[in-house]
Deep mutational scan, measured.
Amino acid sequence: DVEPGKFYKGVVTRIEKYGASINLNEQVRGLLRPRDMISLRLENLNVGDEIIVQAIDVRPEKREIDFKYIP
């Protein structure tokens, strides 16, 4: 289970102007929005990149997770 405040290694699977889709595994994925990137710009991400993200909002009833990137 993903817990708010914990850090996870994820893989960038899609990049859109509203954010990047991050997969932690086949069943768990979430969104990294541009506003939640401290020192990383969306255009510097590539599909397949592995990054460390922090879960900031977990809504299991909607199967949604928001991530934050902290270098």
Rank of each mutant, 00 (worst) to 15 (best):
K6Q: 08
K62Q: 12
R14E: 06
L32R: 01
R29P: 03
V53R: 00
A55M: 09
T13L: 05
G19C: 09
I38T: 11
S21P: 01
F67L: 09
I38E: 10
G5F: 08
D66W: 14
I56H: 05
R14A: 13
T13M: 09
E50G: 06
L24Y: 02
R14W: 09
N46A: 14
A55E: 02
S21V: 15
T13P: 00
K6S: 07
I22G: 01
Y69E: 06
I56G: 06
G30R: 02
D57V: 13
G19D: 04
N25M: 07
R29T: 14
E50Q: 11
V53C: 06
V58G: 04
V12H: 00
R41Q: 11
Y18T: 11
N46D: 07
E16A: 13
L31D: 02
N44D: 15
L45R: 00
N46K: 15
I38L: 09
E50R: 11
A20P: 02
L45H: 01
V58T: 07
I38Q: 11
I22R: 01
R41V: 11
A20G: 02
K68V: 07
D66A: 11
D36K: 03
V53N: 00
E50F: 14
I15R: 01
N23H: 13
A20Y: 08
T13F: 06
R14H: 11
I70E: 09
L32S: 01
L32K: 02
V58N: 07
I52G: 01
V53W: 02
E3V: 15
L40W: 04
R14D: 05
A20V: 14
I56C: 08
S21G: 05
I51E: 00
R41C: 12
K62A: 12
R29L: 09
E26M: 12
L24K: 00
D49F: 06
T13I: 09
D36T: 04
N25L: 06
L32E: 01
M37Y: 03
F7T: 04
A20H: 03
R29K: 12
G48M: 03
I15T: 03
R14K: 13
V28E: 04
L45K: 01
E26I: 12
D36V: 05
D49Q: 11
A55S: 03
N23T: 15
K62P: 06
I22F: 05
G5Y: 07
D57Q: 14
Q27Y: 14
D1T: 14
D36I: 06
G5N: 07
I70N: 09
F67V: 04
V53S: 00
P34N: 06
G10T: 02
E64Q: 12
G10I: 06
K6F: 07
V28D: 05
E64K: 07
K6L: 08
E16H: 15
L42D: 01
N23E: 15
S21H: 15
E64I: 12
D36P: 04
N44I: 05
V53L: 07
I65L: 07
D57W: 11
V47N: 02
E64A: 07
D36C: 11
V2I: 15
P34H: 07
G19S: 06
E16Y: 15
P60S: 09
R59S: 07
R63S: 12
P60K: 11
K68D: 03
K9E: 02
Y8A: 00
N46T: 14
R35N: 08
F7C: 13
L40E: 04
R35F: 07
T13D: 05
E64G: 08
R41L: 13
N46F: 10
E64N: 06
R35K: 13
P4W: 07
P60C: 09
A55R: 03
R59W: 07
K17L: 11
N23S: 15
K68N: 04
L45P: 00
R41M: 11
G5T: 03
F67R: 03
G48C: 05
K9Q: 07
K9A: 08
R63C: 13
D57H: 14
P71N: 07
I65E: 02
R63P: 08
L32G: 01
G48N: 05
R59N: 09
G10W: 08
A55D: 00
Y69R: 03
G48F: 02
D49W: 07
D36L: 05
V11Y: 12
K68H: 05
F67T: 02
I38C: 13
K9C: 15
A55Y: 07
E26Y: 11
F7M: 06
K62I: 09
E26A: 14
P60Y: 11
A55W: 05
Y18P: 02
R41F: 09
Y8K: 00
V11T: 11
Q54F: 13
I51S: 00
L31T: 09
Y18W: 15
E16I: 06
F7R: 05
E50H: 14
I38Y: 10
V11M: 09
R33T: 03
K9Y: 08
G19H: 06
D49G: 02
I65F: 07
R14N: 08
P60T: 10
E16T: 15
Y8H: 00
G10E: 01
N44T: 09
D36Y: 09
V28T: 12
R35Q: 12
K17H: 12
F7W: 11
E16S: 15
K62V: 12
N44K: 06
G48T: 01
L24M: 04
E16L: 13
S39G: 15
K62H: 10
E61Y: 08
G30Q: 02
K17E: 12
D49S: 04
D36R: 04
Y18C: 11
E61P: 06
K62F: 11
V2K: 03
K62W: 08
R35C: 09
G10N: 01
G48Y: 03
I38S: 09
D49V: 06
R35D: 08
R41N: 10
N23Q: 15
I70G: 06
Y8F: 04
V58Y: 10
V28N: 05
K17N: 11
D57P: 03
Q27F: 15
R59D: 10
I38M: 11
V2T: 03
D36S: 05
D1K: 13
P4A: 12
V2P: 05
P60R: 09
P60W: 12
G19W: 13
Y69F: 11
